[in-house]
Design a protein around this nucleic acid. Structure first.
Length: 331
DNA sequence: GATCTAATAT
DNA sequence: CATATTAGAT
């Protein structure tokens, strides 16, 4: 099953233009000759900075529509080679998670977000300065990642995933794989799942009651039908057939929970699977497409980034597309 | 042994 | 309260 999914996705993926095929944003679309023929003023070549500024404007614009973008900081930048490794985590100021939660899409979303630890600042890192730090090379795996912030977007992915897999397959590992979010770990999912289950349980008890005030996050995403069943009995390792609700074979045909109209290139209920710019040097696909992104912060990272998700399956499996969600309120 | 879940810690 | 980490079970 997963293989099939991969096959489909790969197929789709292969259809995408490669770096070379894409016209760099910094490149003029009008040839000099053509330009002069029509008296079009030939604009000076854009610099990386211009491009970034442009992207930023576009993103801002999108955000005002519905796209919940909070920060540009975490976008892999075109300019440098960015990426030190990896996951474009979003670092949030210490107590800001609940931050803009529910209500609101406050307008502007004052993205008061963070600063990436940057290039300039360099290494500091180890707090305390233990004598021997010689041996520790923070490896993508070994590294302790900053706390994950479950943004509504991320949570939605989570719920979608759980909805697709039947309850029986909705276990951390599987969910994580389905979510396909760069940097997301099984533990992250497990922890969230635990809480989500609690929520579901609590919800069932008080049928027809609105979620309590503290359920903001969870209440923000509708509970898939197949999860609202009478009992949520997790982890029953039996060979039960696929959940009647979860689409059996189809890759990710999810449409059930898709509140928004989706353009081409969208994938079922999911926001679509943009390439991970990480490790590919890919400019963002169409800016409009990729929705957001992700989580925590990015502290040290060793390149070797990709593949936090150990997907050793599928020998010939091409690079995976990874989602990156931004923390933002709204939905 | 990997991974799940529940409990507990931060 | 939201997440992370640990412990015990499968």
């Amino acid at each position: 099953m997963v293989k099939e999914d991969d096959a489909h996705v790969s197929e789709w993926e292969n259809g995408l233009p490669t770096d070379e095929e894409l016209t760099p944003l910094s490149h003029s679309l009008i040839s000099p000759a053509l330009a002069s023929a029509f008296s079009i003023k030939h604009e000076p070549a854009k610099t990386a900075v211009d491009v970034q500024r442009g992207s930023r404007a576009t993103l801002l614009n999108l955000r005002n529509h519905k796209a919940p973008i909070t920060s540009f900081d975490s976008f892999p930048s075109f300019q440098g080679h960015e990426n030190r490794g990896g996951s474009p985590y979003e670092r949030r100021p210490e107590n800001s998670y609940g931050a803009m939660g529910d209500d609101s899409n406050k307008g502007g979303g004052s993205s008061k977000n963070v600063h990436k630890r940057g290039d300039s600042e360099s290494e500091d890192d180890d707090s305390g300065g233990g004598p021997e730090n010689s041996g520790e090379e923070p490896n993508a795996r070994t590294l302790k990642r900053p706390r994950l912030v479950w943004t509504p977007q991320l949570h939605k992915r989570f719920v979608d995933a759980v909805g697709h897999l039947g309850i029986k397959n909705a276990v951390p590992k599987t969910i994580m794989q389905l979510m396909n979010v760069e940097g997301l770990t099984r533990e992250n999912v497990a922890s969230h799942l635990q809480k989500y289950r609690l929520y579901l349980k609590r919800m069932q008890g008080l049928s027809s009651e609105g979620p309590s005030a503290s359920d903001h996050l969870f209440a923000s995403t509708p509970i898939p039908p197949n999860l609202s069943g009478p009992h949520y009995m997790p982890n029953h390792r039996d060979d039960v057939g696929p959940s009647p609700f979860a689409s059996p074979n189809v890759p990710i045909p999810y449409t059930a929970i898709a509140p928004y109209p989706m353009g081409p290139g969208h994938y079922g209920g999911y926001e679509q699977y943009p390439y991970s710019a990480v490790g590919r040097g890919l400019p963002q696909q169409s800016p409009q497409g990729d929705h957001r992104e992700h989580m925590m912060d990015n502290r040290n990272h060793q390149n070797h980034s990709h593949n936090y998700n150990h997907n050793h399956n599928q020998p010939s499996s091409p690079p995976q597309r990874i989602l990156t969600l931004f923390p933002t309120s709204s939905h």
